[in-house]
Write a protein that binds this DNA or RNA. Structure first.
Lengths: 338, 338
DNA sequence: ATGAAAGCGCTAACAG
DNA sequence: CTGTTAGCGCTTTCAT
């Protein structure tokens, strides 16, 4: 058993039409008589026919794939971007081809090369830092390129992102305005964590601009930075700089971890230690106390990117005119700070 | 500018060899002289050649895709399964083609059909409940099928999962042994949440087996069930059945939400209310108090599935001999219960 | 509304 | 180690 799977030619033979008519019957728009189409679809179901995209892809030079690289799937923020992106693209008949860089631009280069071989219609990458070869591959691919989650100084093509630096600046001003002076920053010490290092740099700049000491920097190590790392960092902070009044964390996950460390030690948040996070994760809205954070619009980045790709592929923009869509992060004041 | 992209034939012409030699030069194993290969790869780089998988896929009838459906990417447990699966498969040269069913078996049917058109080498689905047509599509696809996260009564092919029913039974016994009597279950009320309903059924069965009242069932609504839903359910529970001693939740997320509701009301956990979760999420290991939970080995499901697919595709199993790999969930006792 | 011919870019199969 | 031939299963293009 298990014969060779049926092709359009087999259906054509069974019905007594040409393969071309069968092909047309599978496109919703094409001109095929009602009865012929029905007969074809019935025969297809009977024979257990499954349309072969690989052949269609080659002939039509169109895969309806959109390649996407993200640092990690195990991060609620990136996952949300991918979800919205995936939703938006599938509504336009496009399928995501997803790859993980593990926060490594060399891995990204390999991944980009591998994904481009599949001939996607467009490619979305996270971040604006790439190896020279990856940049070249992306530039020469002849398809729309979208860099997300950052505002690269020299974009390759389109951009859908926000300024991590400015976002943290808002947070620093929020804390400074509330009267906090001895403010620490947790995370952003690893070179390969580009968004983390930007946030830390933004912290330092904003603290100096406010005339405050910007030297309370606690390391978290390489990403992914989770709750555990936040707890460990808070323990270091409490030991090394016990007079600290507030800590701004590289993400809500580390902020929550820091919070748990305070709870275990009987340190009251925000009375003894105020906390700020980043990313507006679910947890920050429900934990006790809730976390002051920055909404970076992770979901909207995905939705906008899908829309942008749809517009570009369907020619609703001057081709070769790269768009930059900039989100403005919004501070969400909550119980973890006054 | 922007001429037609170069093909193997172009490289062949440039070097003065046949296209076949160029093709061989791109396979690591194939026999091509050292110098010829180097010349070919150099020319390819110069011309900006990108290998075209779509053509190779059609000709060799091999895509190196593995199709995967999960209910949602926004769930740390499924995300972990996908991560390990993706890692394991990419090590074997296979690329994941991921789709989301949104906890809907009709959506799953559509997705399976769409994914099969891409001619994957194998397909992995989450759960054992499918529409009749989806079952037929999967059975007839002629590729290995793996159902994960469940132990279906009538598997389509291979299975990598565990018994949700038995897992919750363990949890119930743990609580009963600790002396809790008035135990509630939160979640598992939505028909389309197959794993949730199994867990609730397991709760009822185990409670009855222990001679306890199994009627304290609090609804959470349709999945995804997050922290918020857990908090709301706990509020209901405290209002409707205030003498409840312990609550077992459909997942760690809802358990954490329930915990926060207790904290806001000054109800001590575990003294006034004990809590149990499911899934061994990061948060349960770090929140205060830490959560008693069940380790369902989400990551290992992914890793084992990758291994299984590798073995089957490389012919290390009798073909047509479906494997069932059963994980035994392990209870992790923590601070949220005595 | 339908058909015939050609070919997308690569590789299986065979030859040398 | 290298080349020749044919063709994977569709869809483009041009006819009718």
């Amino acid at each position: 058993m298990s014969r060779k799977p049926p092709t359009m030619a087999d259906i054509a033979k069974a019905i007594g039409v040409s393969p071309m008519t069968v092909s047309r019957a599978f496109k919703s728009d094409s001109s095929v008589s009602q009865e012929t189409r029905e007969a074809i679809l019935r025969a297809a179901e009977d024979l257990g026919y499954v349309f072969d995209s690989t052949a269609a892809n080659l002939r039509s030079q169109k895969t309806d794939f959109v390649a996407v690289t993200i640092p990690s799937i195990n991060n609620a923020n990136f996952a949300e971007t991918v979800r919205q992106l995936s939703d938006g693209l599938s509504r336009r008949g496009l399928q995501i081809l997803l790859g993980y860089t593990n926060y490594d631009i060399l891995e990204e280069e390999r991944l980009v090369e591998q994904l481009l071989r599949r001939k996607p219609q467009a490619i979305v990458v996270t971040g604006g830092r790439h190896t020279p070869r990856a940049r070249k591959l992306l530039s020469n691919a002849g398809i729309p390129v979208v860099e997300t989650w950052d505002l690269p100084e020299q974009p390759i093509g389109h951009v859908v992102g926000f300024s991590n630096t400015l976002a943290i600046g808002e947070m620093v001003r929020h804390f400074a305005d509330a009267g906090y002076r001895r403010i620490a920053f947790i995370g952003g010490d690893a070179d390969n964590d580009t968004r983390g290092t930007e946030r830390r740099a933004g912290f330092v700049a904003a603290m100096q601009a406010a005339g405050l000491d910007a030297s309370r920097l606690i390391a978290c190590g390489a990403p992914p930075i989770g709750m555990r790392e936040g707890a460990v960092a808070m323990a270091h902070l409490l030991q090394s700089l016990p007079d600290t009044e507030a800590a701004i964390c590289v993400s809500d996950l580390s902020a929550f971890g820091a919070l748990t460390e305070c709870q275990r030690r009987g340190i009251r948040v925000p009375q003894d230690m105020a906390l700020g996070g980043f990313g507006n994760y679910d947890i920050g809205a429900i934990c006790v106390p809730t976390l002051t954070t920055i909404n970076a619009f992770a979901g909207d980045i995905g939705a906008k990117t899908a829309e942008l790709i749809g517009d570009v592929l369907e020619g609703r923009f001057e081709p070769g005119l790269p768009q930059t869509i900039r989100f403005t992060p919004v501070l969400i004041g909550r119980e973890s700070s006054r």
